[in-house]
Design a protein around this nucleic acid. Structure first.
Length: 202
DNA sequence: ACGGTGATAATCT
DNA sequence: GATTATCACCGTA
């Protein structure tokens, strides 16, 4: 068998135990993998957004609002926080310490393996670009849904593995939050510079 | 650029 | 039970 260069295995818990803003950048280039009965699909993370609950008006967990939905963000880092928005499901990685509700939203990935499966799940979309260049799109392409709420990302069927190292990382204001307050201007959106699969600006 | 779509859960009354 | 809030997508202009 070929050796570790091609080995795809979950990153350890240690990886998730870094400050949210750093984790958001560390996730860029990593491989997001989902194994299902239909097959395995994966893609490189190319765009993320950090959400720092207690201080971040844009976050669901702002001011430590603790509910059934945000509960998982108060737990250990490295778990999945899935959230339904209209007909779409969004995927976040829980970060920071217990009782500190912070997370990183996965906004876009570049398809890597299981492309036929993704194409099938995204049937109707001709352009490969449109399979995964948005937070609700990539979850559909990977088959991620609410039943993964609270899943431990260091183990299958959903996990994050080492990928490539981005040559350059860009940062800027986040998207889709018209909340008042200064939070909307924080440059907490990160993406791989000049990458075609990054979701569009508005 | 614009509008229709529509799932879940918190917070009223 | 009704209202409100939420980290979008997609087809049609």
């Amino acid at each position: 068998m070929t050796r570790s260069l091609l080995a795809i295995e979950p990153l350890p818990l240690l990886f998730y135990q870094q400050p949210t803003l750093e984790l958001a950048q560390s996730l860029l280039g990593c491989l997001l993998v989902h194994e299902t009965a239909e097959g395995t699909a994966s893609g490189f993370i190319v765009e993320t957004e950090a959400y720092k609950g207690p201080f971040d008006r844009a976050a669901h967990s702002f001011n430590n609002r603790r509910t059934k939905r945000t509960e998982v963000m108060f737990g250990r880092s490295g778990h999945a926080y899935t959230h339904t928005m209209h007909t779409h499901c969004l995927l976040n990685v829980v970060s920071s310490d217990i009782d500190c509700p912070e997370g990183v939203l996965i906004r876009a990935i570049e398809p890597f393996s299981g492309k036929n499966l993704m194409k099938h799940r995204r049937r109707g979309m001709e352009n490969e670009i449109n399979w995964t260049n948005g937070p609700g799109k990539l979850t559909k392409a990977l088959g991620v849904s609410m039943d993964l709420y609270g899943h431990d990302l260091t183990s299958p069927p959903l996990y994050i593995a080492r990928g490539f190292t981005p040559s350059e990382i860009s940062a800027g204001p986040r998207v889709g939050i018209d909340n008042s307050g200064e939070a909307k201007d924080y440059p907490w959106r990160f993406w791989v510079a000049n990458h075609p699969f990054v979701s569009k600006f508005r």
